[in-house]
Structure formats: C-alpha cells, structure tokens
C-alpha cells in the first residue's frame, strides 16, 4: 500500500464528508439561501434596465459576471477562513500528528471547497432560468465553456485562498488581508459595469488578477457573440483567458505547497492554546 496515495484517498473522503455535513448544517444552508436571494433580488429589480449601448438586459449581462465573481470570491475566502480557523482550533495539528496527515488534510480542503461551489452556483442559476429570459444564449457549447472556466478558475484562485489562510497571523486578520483586497478586486473586475468605465490603470490592475478573467469567461459562455463588442478589444479573448488563469494556476501549484509546509512546521499545541485563550478573551 502506498501511504501517500492512501492518504489522498482519505482526504477525498474527508472533503466529501465535510461537504455533506456542510449541506446539512442550518448555518451553511442559511448562507446559500442568503446569497441566492440577494443576487436574485438585485437582478429582479433591474430586470428591465438595458446595458448602455446594447439591447441586452442587465440580468443577462450581470448574471454570468456575478457567477464568476462568486466563484473567485468564495474559493479564495472559503479556504482562507477555514485554514486560518483550523490552524487555531487544532484540526491542522491533529493531521500533523498523523503519518501523511497533511497530504490528506490539504486534499480534503481542495475537495471540500471545490464541491461547495456547486450549491452556490445552483441556488443562483436554477431560479434565474425560471425568472429571466435569454439567460443562456449558446446552448451546449456555452455549458462546456462554463465547465472549463470553472475548473480553470478554481485552479487559479483556490491556491490563493490557501496561501492567505496560511500566512495571516490569526482568523481575525483574514478580514484585513483576505476579505478587503478580494472585495476591492471584485468591485473593479467588471462585474456590475464594464471594465472600460474605469481609469486606465485600474483596468490594468484588474486584468492582472484572475477575477476579471473568470467573469469574462463566464460572459463568453452565456452571452451571444455580439455582446463581445462590450469587452476590451471587442473580443472574448478566450486564449488570453486560458493563459492568464493557467499562469495563476501554475503559480499556485509552485508556491502553495511551500507555504503550506512552512505553516505546518510552525503549528504547535502552544499556538492552539494561545488562540484558544485569545478567543475566550474575545468572547468576554
């Protein structure tokens, strides 16, 4: 028996268990409901507004962008929070005390956060099809694009979440070092209005990070070809999307294992103890 492969198998099972437990938890059900209702309410109240210069309705344009943004946001913030949290609550330490435990743990994290994407996308997509017209213009080919954009988007952003979760000093700091930059980045990534409406340098910054490209990929999947006229360079720039997201994925694959190893090395029982005491103070 190869212990590494065996540990990865246990990690897959762990991720699946975490996912099932999350689906059953009222807290997480509430989160999915909230995201679904908030997004649909926004789209519903803007159902008659047109995107400037086109005959596209706002829901058609905004829906794929929002899906893209939620993907990028959820997959960065989710692992960032759970890693920071599980460093403090002892989950990580438990795995450090097991043979090949860290490999299983990281596999579990990747599986869990990837799977968590499905309910999030579903609570928005399914009602959207019932409420709005012309949501998907490209049929099967469009769905195929959704799949590769999601997979590539995951590979590009999930490692970033793990890096943030590994380097932040404590859970409370995830807000400052994770949430804040990701919110800023999401708001400049052309989700609610086309990116060209912003200053040139902001456009450049937005196009360095994966969020914009995931949104663009999603729009290329859902919107008719004519809508490409709204984009930078009047094109979906699909090959560049693959290139940028691919580059981030490679970056993640190279950097994340190192950062995780460093974090694991520094995890100890006294650290967990300190976090516990700090959290108790917090409650008081």
């Amino acid at each position: 028996m190869n212990p590494t492969r065996h540990a990865i198998g246990l990690g897959l099972r762990r991720g699946w268990t975490e996912f099932v437990l999350s689906l059953r938890s009222p807290q997480d059900q509430g989160f999915y409901m909230f995201m679904g209702v908030a997004t649909l309410a926004y789209l519903w109240f803007n159902r008659d507004s047109e995107v400037e210069g086109t005959d596209l309705l706002l829901p058609s344009f905004a829906l794929p962008s929002i899906l893209g943004a939620l993907l990028a946001f959820g997959v960065v913030i989710g692992p960032a929070y759970s890693l920071a949290m599980e460093r403090e609550d002892g989950t990580l330490l438990r795995h450090k005390a097991l043979p090949h435990g860290m490999q299983g743990y990281v596999t579990g994290q990747v599986v869990y956060h990837s799977l968590s994407l499905f309910p999030l996308l579903l609570v928005i997509l399914v009602p959207s099809f019932l409420l709005f017209d012309d949501v998907m213009s490209n049929g099967l080919a469009g769905w195929a694009t959704v799949v590769w954009v999601c997979v590539l988007g995951l590979l590009a952003t999930l490692p970033l979440g793990m890096i943030i979760g590994s380097v932040v000093p404590s859970v409370q700091k995830v807000g400052t070092w994770g949430m804040l930059p990701v919110i800023v980045l999401t708001s400049i990534s052309g989700i609610f209005f086309p990116i060209q409406a912003m200053w040139g340098w902001v456009q450049v910054v937005a196009q360095v990070f994966p969020t914009y490209w995931i949104g663009l990929g999603m729009r290329s999947a859902f919107l008719p070809d004519a809508a490409a006229a709204l984009e930078v360079g009047d094109s979906w720039r699909s090959s560049l999307t693959v290139l940028v997201l691919g580059a981030w994925a490679v970056f993640g694959l190279l950097v994340t294992p190192r950062v995780l190893r460093r974090m694991a090395r520094r995890t100890s029982g006294s650290q967990v103890q300190e976090a516990k005491e700090a959290a108790l103070q917090w409650v008081k």
Binding site: T17, E18, L21, S22, R24, S25, E86, D89, G90, T91, L93, R94, A97, G269, V272, Q273, K276
Partner: peptide, 11 residues
Amino acid sequence: VLQSWRDHARW
C-alpha cells in the same frame, strides 16, 4: 494527545 477545543464540531 492534543488539547482541542472546537475542531470538527459537525463530525
């Protein structure tokens, strides 16, 4: 044997 406090709450 580690001193845990809130990990794996749903398990």
